[in-house]
Amino acid sequence: MLKMTHLSKVYRTEVVETYALRDFNIDVKEGEFVAVTGPSGSGKTTFLTIAGLLETFTGGEYHLDGMEVSQLNDNARSKIRNEKIGFIFQAFNLIPDLNVFDNVEVPLRYRGMKTPERKERIMNALERVGLASRAKHYPAELSGGQQQRVAIARALAGSPRLLLADEPTGNLDTQMARGVLELLEEIHREGATIVMVTHDPELAARAQRNVHIIDGQVVDLAEDPRFHTAYTAAAGQVRG
């Protein structure tokens, strides 16, 4: 589904070059649920933005669903984001000017879907996240957990094959976080591939597979001697 080989990402500012990712290798199979962990600044978000075609990369190769994406133009990338990928962000990223229904509708409109189909998908998605009754509410009128569920509904409505979540529970309390995770697990059981970045080892443990990133590289948790200190440090940061 998602395969990166020797991928690198360099951020150049006037004074410094930052290697956010270097010699980055990962292979996520269709239908997998992968949790990505790692210390702050290690490159988790960078990995997700490249995986989700939100950003280009500097070197290496990236195959998404069997297709090499580095040569795609902006319109093609937009189309893939729209049709194949669902995003869930830590900050929910709902559009404050639009009500819940209209928020979920956004990606469907960009797909050029007809009104009756849009309506059906939106209501289905909202029912799945248990918020069908809040369709006319505005994001500011919802709790954080509800907002994140709307964001999930928005990601779901387009039936994406790949769901990318960057700390989806980072802004939520434990109970709400658990609810969101259960929702993701349900979506996963129905066949979607999920890649979720999290700082929470408890949540990470519930995924099928854990990928750990340190300093812009994927490290094998079992073999890498650096693992213990780094992992503990990262986990400690979050709990602290």
Binding site: L54, S78, R81, N82, D97, V106, P107, Y110, R154
Partner: peptide, 16 residues
Amino acid sequence: RRQIGVRRALGATHRD
């Protein structure tokens, strides 16, 4: 800016 970024992430093209 942010919601424009979100719209782009959700599949909006430049033209959209």
